[in-house]
Amino acid sequence: MSSETDTTERARPEPIQAVPVRHPGRWVAVAVIGVLVAMFVHLLVTNKAFNWAFMVDEMFRPPIMEGLRGTLALTVLAMVIGVSLGVVVAIMRLSENPILRGVSWAYTWFFRAVPRLVLAILFGNLGILWARIEFGLPFDRQIGALFGVNDFEARLFGFSALEILTGFVAGMLALGLSEAAYMAEIVRAGIQSVDEGQTEAAQALGLSRTQILRRIVLPQAMRVIIPPTGNETIAMLKDTSLVAFVPVSTELFFQLKAVGNRTFQVFPMYVAACLWYLLLTSVLLVGQYYLERHFSKGFGKSAQAKIRLRGITAEAGGSASEAGR
């Protein structure tokens, strides 16, 4: 009781008004950076090679916009192939069947080993192997020969490889199949991040393997899978420029390059490419931010930070291999 009255009677101490620590280093840094920025801006404005007016005039023309649409479509389609096939490959990798495991391992090995650019060009030239691609009974001719029938054909449908496997489809397949290999690793890491006890509890309840995967494990793995998938999407957007070499003409970089080559104004169009990719990537980055926030709901700050870190390391791994892509 007495101590209580003591504390109330005690005078409140003066608020601290100390002299703050000075940071002269900061001002030096600001000065240096200021000079560098000024030099850069000077370059942008005065160097005639940029030809800004020409660039702005050209970069919104219809063929470029068509290329832009192609790039976006390619990104989305390749990612859809990559994610869905990646999930399948990851599940195969974690299966108890050694053959499935082997196939999955070989798939990831091949598509991670071959650079994306090489893969894209290779796919663009697959028409050399087959003139037509047809679906039906495998080895039908050989089987027919076995029974003494010449030219026996059991085919459901087919299409000309030269028409289909060039350009857009080849590029999409090259990017999508390659992406699946990376996504498989991400999905596998996600599945493995889910506590073993979850599967055990579900097994003890008498759920089947597929039910456990679909209802218990994958929803929890999503939290780990989503952030690096965002990074992969951004990387994919940039990698679509590789299919300009397939060649795919309905693609942003191809179109910009074409304008550059035609008008002999190559450099401004490369700058335009930079600006376009900057813009598109920024939009994706914003989307990624909200997606991550949604999927780490209820998991606390540290869990969120951990996920972000995992995303960053995944990206680092991705960009290291990007050099080889």
Binding site: D195, G197, Q198, E200, A201, A202, Q203, A204, L205, G206, L207, S208, I216, Q220
Partner: peptide
């Protein structure tokens, strides 16, 4: 799985979903 459905199990670490 059918056999397991007749046997309930409770774990030390709960293992709730």
């Amino acid at each position: 799985a059918t056999q397991r459905r007749a046997i309930g199990m409770v774990f030390q670490r709960f293992n709730l979903f």
